[in-house]
Nucleic acid binder design. Structure first.
Lengths: 214, 214
DNA sequence: CCGGATCCCATCCGATACTG
DNA sequence: CAGTATCGGATGGGATCCGG
């Protein structure tokens, strides 16, 4: 990890989060503690030596803690690391403005889908429900209660609502469920009332960031 | 600029801001539009070819605009790029938690000092005043009015208040002016009432981020 | 299997020199 | 002033290997 030679908060932060894979690893840890191989498999393309190296840098900076969970090693954000949540979420929203169309070979992952749910959370009060979301090969779910929202990767067989489709992002952006479903871009299984609750609880209005993209 | 292969807002953002020097360049542009050599001189150590390359990537992503100012080229954030402000400011605050002591060969720059003022802005209503701040080789200033705060690099001869010293960061963190001045860590020239206004207008309470650092 | 370490090649970065 | 060109060294990518 090389210094920028400036006595500056942003420069210090950039030394940590401004290296390749750093932000993606932090995104995944934001969803919850993960084992080494969970991280590795959840981040296609990351070389294991770089994952090792980044985790060590995070440990040295007290951003991540390496703890034993039973006989397994898990990595989890420290309290200090949790302070990155609004930043990573904000960056995710900002970057979503550029996601107009998937690029060649670009896929969603379980963790990126879970992170998208975290990012889209509105903090509006809604009726409690659970939802499972699928996008291509990726699955994640959320459990919304009156007081909190918990998000995790993978399927959730007992979910009240089940959403799928290639254009979930557009659904989160527009909030126009009927249009999304009738155009076939999104499929939904569950009570119509919960669909409405979903778009109230999760939404990423893109004009919240700026407008002058290519 | 290499893709992370994930259809994910954060991954897209990370491709832009997660490369070396990117965040530091954006920090400086956040203070105001800059010419190529202003950026270069304001960022000690950046190779000119990398500055060129980053600016081009930003242009391609519509984050930065290359415009003519008279006969000069200036780079300025687009409206979309301005959307990064809360993120860069947040990162600066988060990283400030690690700035306990300057490292070997680590200096403040005019731009990092100006950015620190931006970062420390509290939005509290205060009496109007202007302040010039000096830390080692770096100088910046701010003009605080009832409705807005403008920050820029360099000296401001007519400033109502003049602050200097090696531990300005501690002043911003603690807000304890009297202690800072009587210990000699900070020197101040100007009315005592403005000193009070300064610490109300600018402050970076570090326990706003987390507590468990080394 | 899990949690890495090692090796080798490609790419990127850093420093300096040079140019319209 | 605003960048290109170049080249050695550092870092990343991908595969393989290893100890528990």
């Amino acid at each position: 990890m090389k210094s920028y030679g400036q006595y500056c908060g942003l420069a210090r932060a950039a030394e940590l989060v401004g290296e390749r894979w750093s932000l993606v690893i932090l995104r995944d840890l934001l969803v919850g503690p993960k084992r080494f191989n969970e991280l590795r498999q959840g981040i296609p393309g990351i070389p294991s030596n770089l994952l090792t190296s980044r985790l060590r840098d995070f440990e040295d900076a007290s951003v991540v803690e390496r703890v034993l969970d039973g006989r397994n090693v898990v990595y989890r954000l420290s309290e200090y690391g949790q302070g990155l949540e609004p930043i990573v979420v904000g960056l995710g929203r900002w970057g979503a403005r550029q996601m107009d169309v998937p690029r060649e070979n670009e896929v969603p992952t379980d963790n990126s889908l879970a992170a998208a749910l975290l990012t889209a959370r509105t903090d509006e009060k809604v009726q409690a429900f659970s939802v499972e979301v699928t996008a291509g090969p990726a699955t994640a779910h959320a459990d919304v209660s009156a007081t909190a929202v918990s998000v995790a990767t993978g399927p959730f067989p007992d979910a009240d609502l089940r959403l799928g489709g290639s254009s979930l992002r557009r659904l989160l952006a527009d909030g126009d469920i009927d249009a999304a479903i009738s155009s076939g871009a999104v499929t939904a299984k569950g009570p119509a009332t919960l669909l409405k609750e979903f778009t109230r609880a999760f939404s990423t209005p893109l004009d919240e960031v700026a407008h002058n993209l290519p």
